[in-house]
Nucleic acid binder design. Structure first.
Length: 125
DNA sequence: ACTCTGACCAGTT
DNA sequence: CAACTGGCCAGAG
């Protein structure tokens, strides 16, 4: 993890954050708040941080989280359709298994009743 | 200093 | 409908 290089492609609003480490930490703070048995999305987290278009970076942060924050409920973060897009990155227990252990039903890599189980981080503010 | 690939997403065609 | 586009940015080569 390092401060982004100041290339021509680096957009100014990136710097509303002190550095990327801070952005990651904010992502992790939100993930830690997701209630047991509920799920949220990469985009919702990004929007909550005031960087609505940086959902992809949230995914990168989650990938890192296994090393830096192993106890985080990373399995409660899915994509906007309730699809378990991060399932290939769970070294220990399968993502679907972790969810089912919390009562979240998963069929075909997709969270059943996603609309009802969705937890919006904005509502926590 | 490139190019390329991702745990993404909203808008447009 | 699906496919495409542009917006993000880290890390590897």
């Amino acid at each position: 993890m390092s401060f982004p290089k100041a290339t021509s492609k680096t957009k100014a609003y990136t710097y509303c954050f002190i550095n990327m480490l801070d952005f990651y930490e904010r992502v992790y703070e939100i993930v830690a708040l997701i209630p047991y048995g509920r799920v949220t999305t990469y985009g919702a987290i990004a929007k909550c941080l005031g960087a609505a278009r940086s959902s992809r970076l949230v995914g990168i942060a989650m990938n890192h989280s296994h090393l830096t924050h192993p106890h985080l409920p990373a399995h409660r973060v899915v994509n906007r359709n309730g699809l378990l897009t991060g399932k290939h990155h769970f070294p220990s227990a399968p993502m679907a298994e972790l969810l089912e252990a919390e009562g979240v039903v998963v069929v075909g890599d997709c969270v059943v009743d996603f609309d009802r189980l969705f937890w919006d981080p904005k509502e926590h503010l």
